[in-house]
Amino acid sequence: MSENASDTFDSNGGGDSEVDDGDGTETDGGEHPQAHTIRLELVDEPGQLLAALSPISENGGNLLSIFHERGNLTPRGRIPVEVDLECPPDRFETIVTALRDNGVNVIQAGAERYGEELTLLLVGHLIDTDLSDTLQRIQRCADATVTDLSLSAPEGTDDVSSARLRLAARTGKTERVLDAIREVTDGKDIHVVEPLTEVSA
């Protein structure tokens, strides 16, 4: 396999014509394209990179750069690829879905999408109130991703336990995420210790 970035643009045909050449040309599909980063894992087989990139241009995304390290394998023996692209905000979801439909393993989609990290504590009978259900509902209701969890229950389930939760949330949506979390935890008598968001001096 001899894929590299320039190869891909060539074989991708129409992709070139959509690249913003800096003269103010609008991106296909609307105004104000935003930059996004997608991290993929590819199987080391011919044609894989092309399969991963065509859904981007087909759905109105402009490829900005591709970082493709063949020599560096992930723990699962795959090749990590980082793709920078820009597209109108409403197209990004479609592109990620199209990639997944094409069988591409998307590790992380868009630093902008989950741009804010949020750490909080939960205190209560976390295990007896079905921690897994609590987390799933938080993810669902709050539209946030749980990225880390630590649980401490020094007295077992006889006494209250504590959990430290790290969430990735959409930029500017942390207040909404916290509201949603309160809704989930109120019903289970779980106390939430929220982070203090200070405006930095």
């Binding site: 401490s152 020094p154 504590s162 430290r164 982070p195």
Partner: peptide
């Protein structure tokens, strides 16, 4: 009143 020691331990592990 509802903050157990375990919550403070978890916070400290994360530099908080």
């Amino acid at each position: 009143q509802n903050i157990p020691g375990s919550a403070l331990d978890l916070a400290a592990e994360d530099g908080r």
